[in-house]
Simulated scan of single mutants.
Amino acid sequence: MNAMRHRCGHRRLQVHKSADVSSYMPEGALGRCVIFVAMLGLAWTVRAEAQIAPNATALIQQANAGNTLAEYRLALDYDQGAQGLPKDPAKAAYWYQMAAAKGYAAAEYNLGVDYDKGLDALPKNPAKAVYWYQMAAAKGYAAAEYNLGGDYVMGLDALPKNPAKAVYWYQMAAAKGYVKAEFNLGVIYEMGLDALPKDPAKAVYWYQMAAAKGYARAEFNLGVDYDKGLDALSKNPAKAVYWYQMAAAKGLARAEYNLGIDYYYGEDGLSKDRAHAVALWKLAAAKNNQSAIAALQTLQHPQQQVATVTTPPPAPPPAPAAVTTSVADNQQTLQNLQRFWTLYFQASNAHVVDFGEPALVRPVGFGGTP
């Protein structure tokens, strides 16, 4: 069972590309995300079933009249198929462009995402993606600042890797309370980034900032820090459990697994509760956490203990028959062999024949008589 005692302690820098799909707030739901160097994916929020709104026609009229906010909201509705309007990527892109042309930061940002990922009928265009991110970031739009930080970390969207600029844009976003930027700063200061040195105190600060907003990954990292005494924090089992519990309550698989370890072995101030440990591991395994899967498999198929049967050792092989040949007999055999080879060469023709071997003129008997 000790094979299960490994704890998860991964630090993952996250470069989220978040699309703003909210009509009112710039903090839209998570759209596109990259986890460290992992693949990019799309995950729009699911809205309630769209109802035909009495103001849809009015919204279109206002947008056609040049109302910037109406243009942006109409783009969102076509993007999501909301307010009784069908999904129409081409119209969404058109109205984003109209609002962006008037300097509306959220529209500029969403155009950046569209060009970044080739969405809303727009082709991928890294240069245009960066342009629109920069336009929105210049207005202090935190999600755009965050995406620029990710581009400089990874060397994406036609931008070279530049750790200093990455930290700059993350700090700009974090100063506005953008939680993913706070978390990434924590990872960067903990692990170091290229030429940027590690700074454990700053890592803890940014983890705490993100954790205070309920960001599960930051809560988990604080749990690991208190569990192992990392990042300038002293070991504190009670705080480790607290932060694991906070992250596990949000469904973070690694926190569920580590908390399961605590319950299984009765560690970090928790009493043994193996049923609770198994329940936590099942939750983590359902999210494809490999450590939890391995722990459950170990429980289902424990190492078989093979019973030790005491059996007598096998009997030694019989000793060979005693050699009774006398020393005199051995000497006689040697003399016979010597005589045989002497007669052999005397009986040869003493010259090399076809195959390079001496040929016998007449056979030689072992007894020594030619």
Rank of each mutant, 00 (worst) to 15 (best):
Q62G: 05
Q62V: 01
A63S: 08
A63R: 13
A63N: 07
A63H: 11
A63D: 10
N64R: 14
A65C: 02
A65R: 11
G66T: 02
G66D: 13
G66P: 03
G66F: 11
G66I: 02
N67W: 05
N67Y: 11
N67H: 14
T68V: 15
T68W: 12
T68L: 12
T68D: 11
T68F: 07
L69G: 04
A70P: 02
E71V: 00
E71F: 10
Y72V: 01
R73D: 04
R73Q: 15
R73Y: 10
R73S: 10
R73N: 15
R73F: 06
L74D: 09
L74A: 08
L74R: 13
A75R: 13
A75W: 11
A75S: 10
A75M: 09
A75E: 11
A75P: 02
L76A: 04
L76Q: 11
L76G: 01
D77P: 04
Y78K: 05
Y78D: 06
Y78M: 09
D79Y: 14
D79N: 13
Q80R: 14
Q80E: 12
Q80M: 14
G81R: 13
G81Y: 14
G81T: 04
G81N: 12
A82D: 13
A82E: 12
A82T: 07
Q83V: 00
G84W: 11
G84S: 07
L85H: 06
P86Y: 10
K87H: 08
D88F: 05
D88M: 03
D88Q: 10
P89M: 12
P89D: 10
P89S: 09
P89R: 13
A90F: 03
A90T: 04
K91S: 05
K91M: 14
K91P: 01
A92Y: 09
A92D: 10
A92W: 11
A93W: 13
A93Y: 12
W95T: 03
W95L: 03
W95N: 08
Y96T: 00
M98Q: 15
M98N: 05
M98H: 04
M98D: 01
A99K: 08
A99T: 00
A99R: 05
A100W: 06
A100Q: 03
K102S: 06
K102Q: 15
K102P: 01
K102E: 10
K102F: 04
G103N: 04
G103K: 04
Y104I: 00
Y104T: 00
Y104H: 15
Y104D: 05
A105Q: 07
A106C: 02
A106R: 13
A107D: 10
A107V: 01
A107H: 12
A107R: 08
A107F: 12
A107N: 08
E108R: 06
Y109I: 00
Y109F: 15
Y109A: 05
Y109Q: 12
N110Y: 06
N110I: 00
L111H: 08
G112I: 01
G112C: 05
G112Q: 04
G112T: 01
G112K: 09
V113M: 15
V113W: 10
D114I: 00
D114Q: 03
D114G: 03
D114F: 12
Y115F: 15
Y115Q: 08
D116I: 00
D116R: 09
K117Y: 05
K117R: 12
K117H: 14
K117C: 09
G118C: 02
L119M: 08
L119K: 07
L119Y: 04
L119Q: 10
D120H: 14
D120F: 08
D120L: 06
